[in-house]
Protein backbone atom coordinates (compact mmCIF):
# COMPACT_ATOMS: atom_id res chain seq x y z
CA UNK A 1 0.00 0.00 0.00
CA UNK A 2 2.93 2.33 0.56
CA UNK A 3 4.09 4.08 -2.57
CA UNK A 4 7.85 4.49 -2.69
CA UNK A 5 9.42 7.87 -3.22
CA UNK A 6 10.24 8.69 -6.82
CA UNK A 7 7.18 7.08 -8.43
CA UNK A 8 4.58 9.84 -8.45
CA UNK A 9 4.49 13.01 -10.52
CA UNK A 10 4.78 16.52 -9.11
CA UNK A 11 1.10 17.56 -9.34
CA UNK A 12 -0.08 14.37 -7.57
CA UNK A 13 2.49 14.83 -4.80
CA UNK A 14 1.58 18.49 -4.38
CA UNK A 15 -2.19 17.98 -4.46
CA UNK A 16 -2.32 15.15 -1.97
CA UNK A 17 0.35 16.81 0.16
CA UNK A 18 -1.79 19.95 0.42
CA UNK A 19 -4.84 17.82 1.29
CA UNK A 20 -2.85 16.09 4.03
CA UNK A 21 -1.75 19.43 5.49
CA UNK A 22 -5.38 20.60 5.61
CA UNK A 23 -6.61 17.31 7.10
CA UNK A 24 -3.88 17.29 9.72
CA UNK A 25 -4.58 20.91 10.62
CA UNK A 26 -8.28 20.13 11.15
CA UNK A 27 -7.35 16.98 13.09
CA UNK A 28 -4.96 18.88 15.35
CA UNK A 29 -7.51 21.60 15.99
CA UNK A 30 -10.09 18.98 17.05
CA UNK A 31 -7.87 17.45 19.72
CA UNK A 32 -7.92 19.40 22.92
CA UNK A 33 -5.06 19.45 25.37
CA UNK A 34 -6.59 16.63 27.47
CA UNK A 35 -6.83 14.35 24.47
CA UNK A 36 -3.33 14.75 22.99
CA UNK A 37 -1.90 11.91 25.04
CA UNK A 38 -4.73 9.57 24.05
CA UNK A 39 -4.26 10.33 20.35
CA UNK A 40 -0.53 9.66 20.71
CA UNK A 41 -0.98 6.35 22.52
CA UNK A 42 -3.65 5.16 20.10
CA UNK A 43 -1.26 6.09 17.28
CA UNK A 44 1.35 3.84 18.90
CA UNK A 45 -1.25 1.08 19.18
CA UNK A 46 -2.11 1.38 15.49
CA UNK A 47 1.57 1.29 14.64
CA UNK A 48 1.76 -1.95 16.62
CA UNK A 49 -1.24 -3.24 14.64
CA UNK A 50 0.81 -2.93 11.47
CA UNK A 51 3.32 -5.35 13.00
CA UNK A 52 0.64 -8.01 13.61
CA UNK A 53 0.62 -10.65 10.93
CA UNK A 54 -2.64 -12.39 10.14
CA UNK A 55 -2.21 -15.81 8.54
CA UNK A 56 -3.85 -16.11 5.15
CA UNK A 57 -3.39 -19.43 3.39
CA UNK A 58 0.31 -20.05 2.85
CA UNK A 59 1.33 -16.44 3.53
CA UNK A 60 0.24 -13.68 5.85
CA UNK A 61 -0.94 -10.09 5.66
CA UNK A 62 -0.39 -7.36 8.18
CA UNK A 63 -3.18 -5.36 9.76
CA UNK A 64 -3.84 -1.71 8.87
CA UNK A 65 -7.00 -0.97 10.89
CA UNK A 66 -7.36 2.51 9.43
CA UNK A 67 -11.14 2.06 9.48
CA UNK A 68 -11.05 1.48 13.24
CA UNK A 69 -8.73 4.47 13.66
CA UNK A 70 -11.28 6.62 11.87
CA UNK A 71 -14.19 5.21 13.91
CA UNK A 72 -12.44 5.99 17.20
CA UNK A 73 -10.55 9.21 16.44
CA UNK A 74 -12.61 10.91 13.71
CA UNK A 75 -10.64 13.82 12.26
CA UNK A 76 -7.78 13.19 14.67
CA UNK A 77 -7.03 10.05 12.65
CA UNK A 78 -5.20 12.37 10.23
CA UNK A 79 -2.35 13.37 12.59
CA UNK A 80 -2.30 9.87 14.13
CA UNK A 81 -1.87 8.17 10.75
CA UNK A 82 0.65 10.81 9.61
CA UNK A 83 2.79 10.18 12.68
CA UNK A 84 2.52 6.39 12.37
CA UNK A 85 3.54 6.53 8.69
CA UNK A 86 6.43 8.92 9.43
CA UNK A 87 7.72 6.50 12.06
CA UNK A 88 7.37 3.62 9.60
CA UNK A 89 9.33 5.63 7.03
CA UNK A 90 12.06 6.29 9.59
CA UNK A 91 12.22 2.74 10.97
CA UNK A 92 11.62 0.62 7.90
CA UNK A 93 12.23 2.93 4.92
CA UNK A 94 8.62 2.50 3.75
CA UNK A 95 7.99 5.54 1.58
CA UNK A 96 9.88 8.81 1.86
CA UNK A 97 9.35 12.34 3.05
CA UNK A 98 7.59 13.87 0.06
CA UNK A 99 5.42 10.85 -0.71
CA UNK A 100 4.43 10.82 2.98
CA UNK A 101 1.77 13.41 2.12
CA UNK A 102 0.27 11.17 -0.53
CA UNK A 103 0.48 8.01 1.57
CA UNK A 104 -1.12 9.78 4.53
CA UNK A 105 -3.93 11.19 2.43
CA UNK A 106 -4.58 7.80 0.80
CA UNK A 107 -4.85 6.08 4.17
CA UNK A 108 -6.35 8.79 6.37
CA UNK A 109 -8.99 10.34 4.11
CA UNK A 110 -10.98 7.08 3.75
CA UNK A 111 -10.48 6.39 7.45
CA UNK A 112 -11.90 9.78 8.46
CA UNK A 113 -14.76 9.52 5.94
CA UNK A 114 -15.71 6.02 7.14
CA UNK A 115 -15.46 7.12 10.74
CA UNK A 116 -17.64 10.18 10.31
CA UNK A 117 -20.28 8.50 8.14
CA UNK A 118 -20.53 5.15 9.91
CA UNK A 119 -20.14 6.11 13.55
CA UNK A 120 -23.77 7.19 14.11
CA UNK A 121 -24.79 3.65 13.10
CA UNK A 122 -22.98 2.17 16.10
CA UNK A 123 -25.69 3.53 18.40
CA UNK A 124 -28.62 1.90 16.57
CA UNK A 125 -29.65 -1.77 16.42
CA UNK A 126 -27.17 -4.61 16.73
CA UNK A 127 -27.43 -5.52 13.06
CA UNK A 128 -26.80 -1.96 11.91
CA UNK A 129 -23.80 -1.86 14.23
CA UNK A 130 -22.43 -5.09 12.79
CA UNK A 131 -22.87 -3.83 9.24
CA UNK A 132 -21.35 -0.44 10.02
CA UNK A 133 -18.22 -1.81 11.70
CA UNK A 134 -17.63 -4.38 8.97
CA UNK A 135 -18.09 -1.67 6.34
CA UNK A 136 -15.70 0.66 8.18
CA UNK A 137 -12.92 -1.93 7.93
CA UNK A 138 -13.81 -3.00 4.40
CA UNK A 139 -14.43 0.40 2.81
CA UNK A 140 -11.45 2.16 4.37
CA UNK A 141 -9.10 -0.35 2.74
CA UNK A 142 -11.09 -0.39 -0.50
CA UNK A 143 -10.96 3.38 -0.89
CA UNK A 144 -7.33 3.53 0.25
CA UNK A 145 -6.40 1.02 -2.44
CA UNK A 146 -8.49 2.98 -4.92
CA UNK A 147 -6.81 6.28 -4.01
CA UNK A 148 -3.38 4.64 -4.19
CA UNK A 149 -4.27 3.28 -7.63
CA UNK A 150 -5.58 6.68 -8.66
CA UNK A 151 -2.37 8.44 -7.57
CA UNK A 152 -0.36 5.98 -9.67
CA UNK A 153 -2.69 6.37 -12.62
CA UNK A 154 -2.72 10.18 -12.51
CA UNK A 155 1.07 10.21 -12.37
CA UNK A 156 1.50 8.14 -15.50
CA UNK A 157 -1.24 6.42 -17.50
CA UNK A 158 1.20 3.59 -18.19
CA UNK A 159 0.86 2.68 -14.53
CA UNK A 160 -2.89 1.98 -14.78
CA UNK A 161 -2.49 -1.79 -15.19
CA UNK A 162 -0.21 -1.91 -12.16
CA UNK A 163 -2.84 0.16 -10.34
CA UNK A 164 -5.61 -2.33 -11.24
CA UNK A 165 -3.53 -5.25 -9.98
CA UNK A 166 -2.92 -3.32 -6.77
CA UNK A 167 -6.65 -2.87 -6.07
CA UNK A 168 -7.52 -6.50 -6.88
CA UNK A 169 -4.71 -7.88 -4.73
CA UNK A 170 -6.15 -5.97 -1.77
CA UNK A 171 -9.58 -7.68 -1.96
CA UNK A 172 -8.79 -10.41 0.61
CA UNK A 173 -7.27 -7.76 2.89
CA UNK A 174 -10.51 -5.75 2.72
CA UNK A 175 -12.53 -8.76 3.87
CA UNK A 176 -10.11 -9.56 6.68
CA UNK A 177 -10.00 -5.94 7.84
CA UNK A 178 -13.80 -5.81 7.86
CA UNK A 179 -14.04 -8.92 10.01
CA UNK A 180 -11.25 -7.93 12.38
CA UNK A 181 -12.68 -4.42 12.84
CA UNK A 182 -16.03 -6.02 13.69
CA UNK A 183 -14.49 -8.35 16.32
CA UNK A 184 -12.47 -5.52 17.86
CA UNK A 185 -15.47 -3.17 18.15
CA UNK A 186 -17.60 -5.91 19.72
CA UNK A 187 -14.81 -6.55 22.23
CA UNK A 188 -14.39 -2.84 23.02
CA UNK A 189 -18.14 -2.40 23.55
CA UNK A 190 -18.05 -5.16 26.17
CA UNK A 191 -14.78 -4.17 27.88
CA UNK A 192 -14.29 -0.39 27.54
CA UNK A 193 -17.12 1.22 25.63
CA UNK A 194 -15.93 4.78 26.33
CA UNK A 195 -13.12 4.32 23.76
CA UNK A 196 -15.78 4.46 21.07
CA UNK A 197 -17.10 7.70 22.56
CA UNK A 198 -13.72 9.34 22.14
CA UNK A 199 -15.04 12.56 20.66
CA UNK A 200 -18.05 13.14 22.85
CA UNK A 201 -17.52 16.13 25.17
CA UNK A 202 -18.87 14.26 28.19
CA UNK A 203 -16.00 11.84 27.96
CA UNK A 204 -13.13 13.90 29.28
CA UNK A 205 -12.52 12.28 32.63
CA UNK A 206 -9.37 14.23 33.35
CA UNK A 207 -8.43 16.17 36.41
CA UNK A 208 -8.11 19.68 35.05
Amino acid sequence: MHISEGVLSGPVLLGSGAATIIGTAIGLRKVNHERLMTVALLASAFFVASLIHIPLGPGSVHLLLTGLTGLILGWSAFPAILVALLLQALFFQYGGLLVLGTNTFNMAAPAVACGLILRPWLKRTKSSRTTATFLAGFCSIFFSALLTALSLRLSDTGLSQAAKILVLSHLPIMLIEGGITLFIVEFLLRVQPDILDFNSPANTNDLS
Binding site: I54, F183, L188
Partner: peptide
Protein backbone atom coordinates in the same frame (compact mmCIF):
# COMPACT_ATOMS: atom_id res chain seq x y z
CA UNK B 1 -8.90 -14.04 13.49
CA UNK B 2 -11.10 -13.67 16.56
CA UNK B 3 -8.25 -14.34 18.97
CA UNK B 4 -5.86 -11.90 17.30
CA UNK B 5 -8.62 -9.27 17.20
CA UNK B 6 -9.26 -9.69 20.90
CA UNK B 7 -5.53 -9.53 21.69
CA UNK B 8 -5.25 -6.26 19.80
CA UNK B 9 -8.48 -4.88 21.28
CA UNK B 10 -7.08 -5.61 24.75
CA UNK B 11 -3.91 -3.75 23.72
CA UNK B 12 -6.09 -0.78 22.74
CA UNK B 13 -7.83 -0.87 26.12
CA UNK B 14 -4.47 -0.92 27.89
CA UNK B 15 -3.17 1.98 25.75
CA UNK B 16 -6.32 3.95 26.46
CA UNK B 17 -5.99 3.53 30.21
CA UNK B 18 -2.26 4.13 30.14
CA UNK B 19 -2.88 7.41 28.28
CA UNK B 20 -5.17 8.57 31.11
CA UNK B 21 -2.60 7.69 33.75
CA UNK B 22 0.32 9.29 31.90
CA UNK B 23 -1.71 12.43 31.25
CA UNK B 24 -2.65 12.68 34.93
CA UNK B 25 0.94 12.11 35.99
CA UNK B 26 2.14 14.82 33.62
CA UNK B 27 -0.51 17.26 34.86
Amino acid sequence: YKTLSHLFAMTLVKSWNRAQRVHQAML
